[in-house]
Structure formats: structure tokens, C-alpha cells
Design a protein around this nucleic acid. Structure first.
Lengths: 194, 194
DNA sequence: GGGTCAACCAAGCAAGCGCTAGTGTAAATG
DNA sequence: CATTTACACTAGCGCTTGCTTGGTTGACCC
């Protein structure tokens, strides 16, 4: 078994698992289906993962870590105005949601299938990400760009963005960046400069 | 078997099933668990429902029909100003989400477990509900209350509201009506009169 | 008072489930 | 060369799953 998540083979298996979990749901995805998709027999799966739950945890961990990295980079790359930071965060959020779509859909839909230790560990990762959002919202509130309660606004915004996985069509005419900007337009009072 | 959904016994079974589906998820809820919760043996379940999927469809149908009724009533009860209608719709949405919470959580999380015919039927119900929202958003846009694209705004708003099932605490200090009003404040330009 | 019918039960089948045990093998390591 | 390691295989155990079958019960009806 391979405890490190860094093994390249394991990374690839995790990616394939994410796709199957999205298509079928975690419970309906059998270890035999996973193995076939990976081109091995079902028994061999347990050389890479302790059990089925660990595959789920690996999928979600990948996605959440990527989201954190992308958001932090985006924030560090833009100037410090509240408006810029708000745009950058919204764009980063949708970029992750799109490029790592499978992993995030799994995280949103199958969170409750995690056992308690995995949930605790991944919960911290998620909290770190969400507190990034709350900082950005705080700045926007202080700048008078947005009105309302800090907690509520960040929840509403994340809800609106996460909901996009249910209707967004990557082959459509709108880019994720346009989507993000439209959301910012909707919630901001004054014309916002990028 | 009882094809009508109106049988009182069936209604009660549907309510209990919704609760279990929320607690455990559809796939992990066995017919034996359902039967026990209902105080009967697992075989007897199939006197009321053709199969397990039909129970899921019944749960979602209940919730969606209720949502439609509540929203229509709310809209017919308020005056015709864009602002009033926006407030009324948001409040109705959260009221349904709260009082019929189990059914709606199931609808949001387990939609993909429906077979294709059930999905087609319930899809129409959902579309009817969503077009109510789009009308209200249209009015708000025309009145200059909200800025942006009609399709995007309605999606963002529904996303923000539906996301509440993941974090809202009914025992907390905020009422659903306050939540709805806060959302309207966030997305509207001018001070909105109720 | 025979007939009807919804509601339930006991028993179990066939299929599928996650996972384990034991083995083979080719490449890396000392 | 001997040993270890990574990865895969075969075979199947023990259990649970959704659902079926055949039969019983009691309330209601002409």
C-alpha cells in the first residue's frame, strides 16, 4: 500500500476515480468498476488504497488543495484594492470549479460518505479556503462595495458560485471569468474597476 | 400497489422515507431500514411502492409540488411592485426549503438516482417553479432594481438560496424571512421597500 | 355470510458487494 | 548474486442487497 499521495500512479487512479464518482455516485461505484476503469483487477486496487473510502478522501483532498493553491496565487498576483481582490477570488473559484470539476462535484455531493477522521482532516482544508473568502468579503464590506452581513454575504456568494456546477455548460458561449464578473456586478453597488 | 400518491398511508411513508434519505443518503438506505422505520416488514413495502426508486420519486414530487403551491400563493398575495414580488419569492423559497427541508435536500442531492421517466416528469415540475423565478427576476431587472443577465441572475439567486440547506441552523437567531431579506439587500441597488 | 380487498408477514432467492489471502514477476537495491 | 519492493493476479469468503412468492388477517359490503 502507498500511504503517500504523491505516487504518480495513485494520482492517476484518483483522477479516474473522481470521474466515475461523478458519473455514478460514490455508493454505486463498485471497486470492480474502479478497477476496470484503471485497467487492473479489483483485488489490485487495495495495493494502492487501504479501502474504498480512502479513494474518496484522496479525490476530495486533491480538489481542495488545488483550490487553495489557485486562490492564494490569484490573490497574491492582484493589487490590494477590495474590488480587485473580489474579482480575483470569484474568478479563481470558478476556474477551480471548472478545471477540477470532477473532484469538486464529488466534494459537494459525497462529503457525508467520508468517515469521521477524513472529514475532520478535509474539514480543516475547507475551512482554510472559506476563510480566504471571508477576508475578501470583509474588505469589500469595509470599502462599501457590498452591503450586508459578512457571514451571510460570503455564504450567499459561495452558494451562487458552487451552484454553477449544476447548470454551467463549458461548451457554451460564456467563459468562467465572465461568469465571475457578472456575479460581482450583481452584488456590488458602484461600478467596480478591475 | 397504490399508484395514487394521495393515499394517507403512502403520504406518511413518503415523509418517513424523506427523513431517512437525508440521514443516510438514498443508496445507503436499505428497504429494510425503510420498513423498520415504518413499522412493517421489508416485503410489505412493495405493496405501497413498485420499487425503491418510486419512493424516491414520491419524496421529490411532494416537495416540489409544495414549493410550487407556496410560491404561487405568496406571489398572488403581495402587490405587483417588482420589489414586493422579489421579497415574496425569496421568502417563499426559504420557507419551503425550511418546512419541507427533508424533501428538498433529497431533491438536491439524489436527483441523479431517479430513472429517466421520473426525471422527465419531475423535471417539468421543477422547470415550472424556476420559470416563476425568472418572471420575478425579469420584473426586477426592468425596474432597475437588479443589474445583470436574466438567466445568470436567476441562477445565482437560486444557488445562493439553495445553498442555505448546507449551513442554515433553524435553532439560530435568524429567521428564514430575515435571510431572504438580506439576500435581496445584497443584490438590489437602491433601498428596497417591502 | 360469502366475497372482496387493502395491508401485512415469513421465508428466501439470485446477484452483487467490499475486501482478503496467497502467489507470481519484473525491476530496483544491497 | 541474493533480497527487497512495487504491482498485479486468481479465487473466493461472508455478507447484504432489492425484490418475489405465497399465504394470512381483519375490516367493510351487498
Amino acid at each position: 500500500m502507498n500511504v503517500m499521495n504523491a505516487s504518480p500512479r495513485r494520482k492517476e487512479l484518483t483522477r479516474l476515480a473522481a470521474q466515475l464518482f461523478v458519473q455514478e455516485g460514490f455508493d454505486r461505484t463498485t471497486v470492480r468498476m474502479l478497477a476496470q476503469e484503471m485497467g487492473i483487477k479489483s483485488g489490485s486496487l487495495f495495493h494502492h488504497f487501504r479501502d474504498k473510502q480512502e479513494i474518496l478522501a484522496a479525490v476530495i483532498e486533491e480538489g481542495t488543495e488545488n483550490a487553495l493553491v489557485i486562490a492564494k496565487e490569484a490573490l497574491s498576483r492582484c493589487d490590494s484594492s477590495a474590488s480587485s481582490r473580489l474579482h480575483a477570488m470569484a474568478r479563481a473559484h470558478l476556474e477551480t470549479l471548472l478545471t477540477d470539476r470532477n473532484a469538486h462535484v464529488v466534494a459537494l455531493y459525497e462529503w457525508r460518505r467520508l468517515d469521521s477522521e477524513a472529514r475532520a482532516h478535509l474539514g480543516h482544508l475547507r475551512d482554510a479556503y472559506e476563510s480566504l473568502w471571508e477576508e475578501v468579503i470583509d474588505d469589500a464590506l469595509a470599502a462599501g462595495l457590498v452591503h450586508g452581513d459578512r457571514f451571510l454575504v460570503s455564504r450567499f456568494v459561495m452558494g451562487a458560485l458552487n451552484w454553477t456546477v449544476r447548470w454551467y455548460d463549458p461548451d457554451g458561449t460564456r467563459t468562467p471569468d465572465e461568469l465571475a464578473d457578472e456575479l460581482v456586478v450583481m452584488i456590488t453597488r458602484s461600478a467596480s474597476t478591475r
